[in-house]
Write a protein that binds this DNA or RNA. Structure first.
Length: 197
DNA sequence: AGCGTGATCTTT
DNA sequence: AAGATCACGCTG
């Protein structure tokens, strides 16, 4: 399948949240080994008026990559143990991004199992911290883009509207009313959400 | 349901 | 300098 170019990312963040579903995230390892995962869950974060977004009060050392070009990877360290992967969207000032919350393993599953220390397929990448571990993504990936030879997205047929679920975002306290989480309905690799109180 | 974990940001 | 807050995952 074809690689996705810059124009793919240059649409409103909430549209991109759905368009990313079904697409294949690829990481090439030394030795021409490929890791592939199908994106099955995303969350949108928008700089303006979204108090759950890291950038809602402006640029800081941590969030500066959110102000970069669409298609850049924003990776940050969370809860003392996990790296979380976002794909930057929107023009600079808007500071939007999509959190990649879950993928379905497609290729390189042996490597992923080793990374995760377990082999249950539906547990390998069914959460934002799990998938970065499976793909060996850490802070060194922060600021890299998806247009090189190591990281890129491959096109795939769009997921029909009837197959897309919507909900509030997981694990946040502010702006909980915004239904900006998108996922593929009934897909077993979608994260198991902690029920909100 | 509870807790480890450590960077980041806000408030003194 | 100190305290609060986490875009989480694991155990039980």
């Amino acid at each position: 399948m074809e690689r996705l170019e810059n124009q793919f990312y240059e649409i409103p963040t909430l549209e991109l949240a759905e368009k990313l579903l079904g697409k294949i995230f690829v990481r090439m390892l030394p030795g021409n080994i490929a890791l592939r995962g199908r994106i099955v869950e995303t969350e949108a974060y928008l700089g303006l008026h979204d108090e759950a977004c890291h950038a809602w009060r402006g640029m800081t050392p941590r969030n500066r990559i959110m102000f970069h070009a669409p298609g850049t990877m924003y990776v940050y360290f969370s809860y003392g143990s996990h790296y979380l992967l976002n794909i930057v969207s929107e023009p600079q000032e808007s500071a939007g991004a999509l959190l990649i919350r879950a993928m379905e393993p497609v290729e390189g599953i042996g490597f992923m199992e080793k990374q995760r220390g377990q082999s249950k397929l539906t547990s390998l990448m069914s959460g934002p911290g799990k998938l970065t571990k499976a793909l060996a993504i850490d802070k060194s990936c922060n600021g890299r883009d998806l247009f090189g030879e190591e990281f890129f997205l491959e096109d795939a047929p769009p997921v029909p509207e009837s197959m897309i679920g919507t909900s509030a975002r997981v694990g946040i306290s502010r702006s909980r009313e915004l239904p900006w989480r998108k996922f593929i309905l009934h897909n077993p690799h979608v994260s198991k959400v902690r029920l909100p109180e």
